[in-house]
Design a binder for these strands. Sequence first.
DNA 1: TTCGTCATGTAATGGGTTACATGATTAC
DNA 2: GTAATCATGTAACCCATTACATGACGAA
Lengths: 204, 204
Amino acid sequence: MSSQRTGVLELAVLGLLHETPMHGYELRKRLNSVLGAFRAFGYGSLYPCLKDLTARGLIAEDALPDAAKSLAGRRSKIVYRLTADGKERLEDLLSETGPAAWEDDGFGVRFAFFGQTRADIRLRILEGRRSRLEERVEAVRASLARTRERVDSYTLELQRHGLESVEREVRWLNELIASERQADAESARQPVDNTQNGADAPAD
Amino acid sequence: MSSQRTGVLELAVLGLLHETPMHGYELRKRLNSVLGAFRAFGYGSLYPCLKDLTARGLIAEDALPDAAKSLAGRRSKIVYRLTADGKERLEDLLSETGPAAWEDDGFGVRFAFFGQTRADIRLRILEGRRSRLEERVEAVRASLARTRERVDSYTLELQRHGLESVEREVRWLNELIASERQADAESARQPVDNTQNGADAPAD
DNA sequence: TTCGTCATGTAATGGGTTACATGATTAC
DNA sequence: GTAATCATGTAACCCATTACATGACGAA
């Protein structure tokens, strides 16, 4: 039932390859530099994923055994690039606004590729995540309130710190949402857009 | 070798049951209230885990079909309690100071049960986690420094926010470590301890 | 020549999620 | 009597991890 099993890794690979073709080793480094603070992938995850994506025709390999490679960079074995199908798939994934898009992992990756995401989708994802986090805040607050649940001080401290972290992210989201809305309003006033569906432009 | 496959859930269950016997449903609530901000487990994870732990003799079920249940609490089907083996296992797990203890998940659970953990182990885990996080900070900082890696502003913002989060946790750990050390020093001056190996006590 | 990093993989397994299925008890 | 919550489970699947294995290339 419409359950597009995402797999953070798949999305991340497609997203990175959309920016520019790369080979596995490089991909992994970029991956861990972009998502660095949250997640780390090893080769044991990446290579099987690349094989899978290739088999599904979403990416393709351009093997260059010992080609020119003008300046910069050692010679590479297999360079992967996004296929047309892959690009389509990427757009589909980046258009999702459901749970996958606001849960911890999924959100991080999607946010990293917000540059390739439609503005309205961005907003919905940010808001989705915010309300998700607000639920958590509520849950922890409730738990903190029920002090009868005799908790030792460490458990309490953990909850307190966790709560603060989540609240902090909510504030961050608030700022992001505000600035998205502002940008939206401004671009509506003077549509300087490129490649966008041009609404009736105001006579200058 | 020696790879004691932990499984956050297993440890969490043992830890909670060490405090007091409980049945599955209750266990799950406590679980998500204690670890609330970080992780959530569903029944689909919990019950199989309980069966597994039972099979391994680490916990046991006390079925009370419709017993007295004096005050407070609805009648429960299966109440789980920690066995002697389970307690031993729990102590082993809580004594670990390796990767399992300072990686995201493992750390959270272990911290929640610090009350049941030896003071020296606590300190080593806190320090282990701190140095782990410091590595991450370094990695992200390095990535931020290499501005050549043309990143769009969203990716950048994600990295920036991630970095701040990690730095924040490092500060938190610093405080915790300091207060652990202080408590340690104080208890060394006047050993008011119970159940501890009594060093030569100072004549009052 | 040896070390570090670049570079690519595989096999086995793991730990947990999702979705489904069921029924008892309590509050309204 | 009906809805919410309590309460217990199973089957299928998934995404990734761990540990291992291999080798070329450049710098010291």
